[in-house]
Amino acid sequence: MVKIPKSHPRYWSLLYREKIIEGMERGITAKAGLIAHGRGEAFDYLIGEKTIKPAEEAMRAAVAKLLLAKHPVLSVNGNVAALVPRETVELAKVLRAKLEVNLFYRTEERVKKIAEVLREAGAEEVLGINPTKRIPGLESERGKVDEEGIWKADVVLVPLEDGDRTEALVRMGKFVITVDLNPLSRSARMADITIVDNIIRAYPRMIELAKEMRNYPREKLEEIVKNYDNSRILSEVLIHIKDRLTKLAEEGIWRRERLE
């Protein structure tokens, strides 16, 4: 990995970009994952590279639903394994959820390498290595799932996801949660709960929320989920982007005097 000086104004962005590149070099991340990451960075700029209020509300609802679930599962792809392996494992543990590797560009070698990364991060069990079931209507390799994992799950967290699998899981009757920086994507619009945030911020925050909310009475968790409206949240994200861009345009993005 290229060493990036912490004094660099884009330190964190460049660091996680390098993690994706390193993931590709290790055989964890597919080439298409680099494109997806760049697209996500663009939307992160638009929201201001911070966790906004609609994302916080979505995270609370997501954690509540996962804590209520009988068989919660966290899906893991190459980008997730490259960016937040330890956070993924910790989140699964605090939620008492299973981990399952699921890939669009699936090879047995990639699956085993991702499983190894998760085990190095502390995972005791990783599903998806030998899938025995297929999601109905999904012909890609992503349709292959573990009978004890996504196939059995009632609630599935599918971050950085393709819209076709999100839609297919919804058709199966699963409650689907996604983390997606693009509020206009099919995944964002098809999911039951969409967290429009960078996963490097979302997962640590969800861990904090899960540790707090696991002590809530069931009735309180159910109330949080009941009051959640994903359409409203996505609309609020778009309004946030519109208002932010309007403000930037009115104030002027480039202020040369700041550099003089």
Rank of each mutant, 00 (worst) to 15 (best):
V80E: 06
N227T: 04
A115I: 12
K242T: 15
E18T: 01
V196K: 02
T88M: 00
V94Q: 00
G78K: 09
P131G: 02
P136C: 05
K19L: 14
E250C: 14
A30M: 05
V145E: 06
H37V: 14
A97Y: 00
N215P: 00
A58M: 12
P217E: 01
E108L: 15
M213E: 05
L66Q: 04
I200T: 14
E90C: 04
K19M: 15
P217R: 11
K53R: 10
N102V: 06
L169I: 04
E25T: 13
E18P: 12
V94L: 06
G40S: 08
R171F: 10
A249W: 10
T246E: 15
L127C: 04
I253T: 13
W151T: 09
E57C: 05
R60V: 03
P72R: 03
T194S: 00
K220R: 05
G173I: 14
E25D: 11
E49S: 10
L95W: 00
E56C: 01
A30Y: 06
F43K: 08
A61V: 03
K31N: 10
K65N: 00
P136Q: 02
I253H: 06
N215Y: 13
K53Y: 10
E108M: 07
K133R: 11
I28S: 07
L14R: 03
G48T: 04
L83K: 07
A191V: 03
K113G: 09
E141V: 14
R60M: 08
P72H: 12
D243Y: 13
P72L: 00
P217M: 09
N215Q: 08
E18Q: 11
R218W: 07
R256Q: 14
L238C: 07
L209K: 03
L209D: 04
V76C: 03
Y228W: 09
V225N: 12
D243E: 12
V176L: 08
A69P: 08
L181D: 05
I150G: 03
V94T: 03
A168V: 11
P9I: 13
R258V: 15
L34V: 13
E147H: 10
T51W: 01
I224A: 11
N77M: 06
E124D: 02
V111N: 04
V89G: 02
W254Q: 14
T107I: 07
S187L: 01
I241Y: 08
G78S: 02
I4P: 03
I195P: 00
S7Y: 07
Y216I: 13
A249D: 13
I193E: 00
K112H: 12
M206I: 04
S185F: 02
V145C: 09
V176K: 05
L74A: 01
D44R: 09
I233V: 07
T194N: 01
P85R: 05
A69H: 07
N198Y: 12
E87A: 06
I52F: 00
K247Y: 11
R171D: 12
I193C: 03
L160R: 06
I47R: 04
N227R: 12
V156R: 00
V80T: 11
K152C: 12
K174Q: 05
Y203E: 01
M190G: 10
I21P: 11
P5Y: 02
K247A: 10
E208A: 07
A168D: 07
E251C: 06
T29R: 02
T246N: 12
G137C: 07
Y16I: 13
L184R: 15
L234S: 04
L259Y: 11
